Simulated assay, not measured.
Amino acid sequence: MEAAAGEGGGGNGTLSELYQNTKKVVIRTRDAVERLERLEYSSGSIGMDSPELSFSITKDITHIQSLCVEMDRLCRSLPSKSHRDLWKRKVEQVAEEAESLKQSLDKYSLRNQKRMMEAKERAELLGRANGDSHVLRIFDEEAQAKQSARNSARMLEEASSTGEAILSAMSGSRERLKKAHRKALDVLNTVGLSNSVLRLIERRHRVDNWIKYAGMISTLIIVFIMWRWTR
């Protein structure tokens, strides 16, 4: 019994020491991951990479996982079930922390690969742009020529529409002038006819006056002759 208890106590002490050492590695690895993430955004959108730091973090995570395996083996050898359950939960928490650190490192690696690929694509595009600058300039000049032709065609269409509107207005004015001319001729003709009638009336009036005066004179002469004969 005493031998069994001594063995259990020694295992518990070894497990506690191993757990404390593992927690120190976890804290060190978490600080390294945070430093790596700060370094990622230290140069704006381009970011920086530290292969040495990434490798050190990977090595520490692997070490933590191996320590968790060793602690799990030791906690299984504990004689007390309550102690086994307690240490099992502690080991599981450390294993979860190691997995979380591994996921953070994997996400960083994916972001870094994406940045490297985008930088490579930009460099290739810039290289092609520099090599094809003459072709692009030709395309640009051709596009400008097409735009100028479209602008000229639109200006011609507007000028044609304006000319048609002016001709239509002139045609309408010409018709109105013709109508006014015809009315003026009608008025002139009417005035000419009225003048002829007035002259005819005036001539008839003068003739009537002559006849009237002649009759009066003739009557006076006849009366005078009759008066002379009666004496």
Rank of each mutant, 00 (worst) to 15 (best):
Ile166Trp: 09
Met116Arg: 08
Arg115Ile: 02
Asp85Gln: 10
Leu185Lys: 10
Glu164Ala: 12
Arg111Gly: 00
Ala98Asp: 00
Glu121Arg: 09
Ala143Tyr: 06
Glu99Arg: 05
Ser161His: 11
Glu118Asp: 06
Ser133Thr: 07
Ser100Leu: 05
Gly127Ala: 06
Gly192Ser: 15
Ala159Thr: 07
Pro79Met: 06
Thr162Trp: 03
Leu198Arg: 10
Thr162Tyr: 05
Val191Ile: 03
Ser100Tyr: 11
Asp132Glu: 12
Ala149Phe: 11
Lys90Ser: 02
His134Pro: 02
Met71Lys: 01
Arg84His: 11
Glu158Leu: 10
Glu97Val: 03
Ala119Asn: 05
Ala143Met: 13
Asp72Arg: 06
Thr190Arg: 04
Leu105Thr: 00
Ser173Gln: 11
Ala159Lys: 02
Lys88Asn: 08
Gly163Ala: 04
Glu96Arg: 09
Val135Arg: 08
Arg137Met: 04
Asn130Ser: 09
Ser168Arg: 09
Arg128Leu: 07
Ser161Leu: 13
Glu97His: 01
Leu193Tyr: 08
Val91Cys: 05
Arg122Trp: 03
Lys183His: 04
Leu78Pro: 00
Glu97Thr: 01
Lys107Val: 04
Ser168Leu: 12
Lys120Ala: 12
Val94Glu: 00
Gly131Phe: 07
Gly163Ser: 10
Ile138Phe: 08
Leu105Arg: 00
His181Met: 08
Leu126Cys: 14
Lys107Trp: 03
Leu110Met: 03
Leu101Met: 04
Ser173Leu: 06
Arg111Gln: 02
Val135Leu: 11
Met117Tyr: 13
Lys146Asn: 05
Ala95His: 00
Lys178Cys: 05
Ser194Met: 05
Asn151Asp: 15
Ser171Asp: 13
Ser161Tyr: 10
Asp140Ala: 11
Arg111Asn: 00
Ser109Phe: 02
Lys88Ser: 13
Ser161Arg: 10
Ala169Asp: 10
Ser161Gln: 15
Glu157Ile: 07
Ser194Lys: 14
Met71Gly: 00
Leu125Pro: 00
Met71Val: 00
Thr162His: 07
Ser148Cys: 14
His181Ala: 15
Asn195Asp: 14
His134Phe: 08
Ser109Tyr: 03
Val135Trp: 07
Val91Ala: 01
